[in-house]
Design a protein around this nucleic acid. Structure first.
Length: 433
RNA sequence: GUGACCGUAGCUCAGCUGGUUAGAGCGCCAGGCUGUGGCCCUGGAGGUCAUGGGUUCGAAUCCCAUCGGUCACCCCA
């Protein structure tokens, strides 16, 4: 049997599918759109694939994502054609930045606040909360260095979670400095760890040259004595970065968002400067980060744009839906069917069809039976659909030009003339509180 | 890429130390109620017991391999 590719998921109709229920996805997407627009963010949809080079340069050559997790497409099925391959996006920021530069969005009113959501792809081994195709809500702000903006992008995620009814989030925060202070810090880290290299894991030995900050979040050597005595980023920030970090914390306190400073979070993407953060929920298992992000003041320039500060985050939609499901938190249900038209027999159905379509053209959610089933079966089906009313049209009603209109919630029914106008009016009356 | 555990109806699972035609609940379809949903009762459809090989008189059950899944490591949303 043909199966969905490893690490992908079907989004299906039906509450029994838990976090894969398409109604729950629609509710989350709706919440995302609403809160984004409410906070002044506009939608920017970049393509799902980009030139490979964008991710190599934007995410960072030394990252795991670029080195071993990208789905790179073979152009026209052929090998070769070096240098111009396409890659399914492994994250959103690089494409958002590319679109900002390419379309001259620095000419828009500043700062430029954009959001998007959709699938991203990483060739990882799947496990709970981690997939090869996964979905993110992405938020980015270009052109503002004010730490109040860092606070805003942290707050908007919290606000969404709160609006959905999710409690128990843990915000971790750190500052990893900027080109002014990080080089000196990096050297200090190298000097600190170099005497212990023989005792550290192979990855750390590699990282000390390429990206010494990553030594700090190494799980293998977490208990090594050198880790506890390691210099922290926040102790070595330049004045500007220190002030920025302090101001951000002031804002978070003012917003009533509890957080803790965690010197160990450095993030796996190369482009971050100053602020980095993650938001965790303990219910989730090993992949406990619901979302994460930070500031990337050098990235726009690095990708060929004018020097432009930026800050943003990406939230894992599967992870959000899984936590909501495990916490038993309901989401707004989709609108129910207004009317199910139960026509008995061929003549009745011929008479019913024009009425059904007329009601649909008026915008009512109306459905009918196509399997020629008994009234009982049609009633049962209408009940499963959650239809608010059922219109019953049998021989005797057809002769008299009426339908029996049954209120499925109240269990009451009455006769109504067999016209779209009469039915629409009867439904409007009955649904008025 | 590494490790552990697991593959029996659409779903959740039972099937004892190998022993006739492989079961249940839910779901689906139909009937009980020849025109009225939810509750109840009855019946039906639906399975190459993941696949291939081996051991055996006999394998869903034991062994091996392959494929797939889950969880964890690494890393991340």
């Amino acid at each position: 049997m043909l199966r969905a590719p490893r690490g992908t998921n079907d989004i299906l109709p039906g509450a029994q599918f838990r976090w894969q229920d398409s109604a729950r996805w629609q509710a989350l997407e709706e919440a995302i759109r609403r809160i984004s627009l409410q906070y002044g963010y506009q939608e920017l949809r970049p393509p799902v694939f980009e030139q490979t080079e964008l991710f190599a340069r934007g995410v960072g050559e030394s990252t795991d994502i670029v080195q071993k997790e990208m789905f790179t497409l073979m152009p026209r099925g052929g090998e070769g054609e070096e240098g111009s391959t396409l890659t399914l996006r492994p994250e959103f920021t690089a494409g958002m930045v590319r679109a900002y530069i390419e379309n001259g969005l620095h000419n828009l009113p500043q700062p430029v606040k954009v959001f998007t959501y959709g699938p991203a792809f990483r060739a990882e081994r799947p496990q709970k909360g981690r997939f090869r195709q996964f979905h993110q809500w992405d938020v980015e702000v270009f052109g503002a260095q004010d730490p109040a903006v860092d606070a805003e992008v942290i707050e908007i995620g919290i606000a969404l979670a709160r609006r959905l009814g999710l409690e128990g989030l843990e915000v971790s925060l750190n500052s990893i400095g900027c080109p002014a202070c990080r080089p000196a810090y990096r050297e200090r880290l190298r000097a600190h760890f170099r005497p212990y290299l023989s005792e550290l894991c192979p990855d750390c030995n590699r990282r000390i040259d390429q990206n010494p900050l990553r030594l700090l979040d190494c799980k293998v050597d977490a208990d090594h004595p050198a880790m506890r005595t390691a210099p922290t980023t926040v102790e070595h920030l330049c004045d500007e970065c220190r002030q920025h970090f302090a101001a951000l914390q002031d804002h978070l306190r003012a917003l009533g968002i509890p957080y803790r400073v965690d010197p160990k979070i450095v993030r796996g993407l190369d482009y971050y400067t100053k602020t980095v953060f993650e938001v965790l929920h303990p219910q989730l298992g090993a992949q406990s980060a619901l979302w994460g992000g930070g500031r990337y003041d050098g990235l726009v320039e690095h990708l060929g744009g004018k020097p432009t500060p930026g800050v943003g985050f990406a939230m894992g939609m599967e992870r959000m839906l899984m936590v909501l499901d495990e916490m038993g938190i309901p989401l707004p249900p989709p609108p129910r069917q207004d009317l199910f038209f139960a026509a008995l027999g061929e003549a009745a159905r011929r008479a019913a069809l024009p009425v059904v379509y007329a009601l649909r053209r008026q915008g009512l959610a109306v459905d009918l039976d196509y399997l020629g089933r008994s009234l009982k079966a049609q009633m049962k089906y209408a009940g499963r659909l959650g239809a608010r009313f059922v219109a019953i049209l049998g021989e005797s009603e057809l002769e008299r030009g009426v339908v029996v209109l049954r209120d499925m919630d109240q269990g009451q029914q009455r006769e109504v003339p067999l016209t779209a106008e009469a039915l629409a009016q009867a439904l409007a009356e009955a649904m008025r509180p």
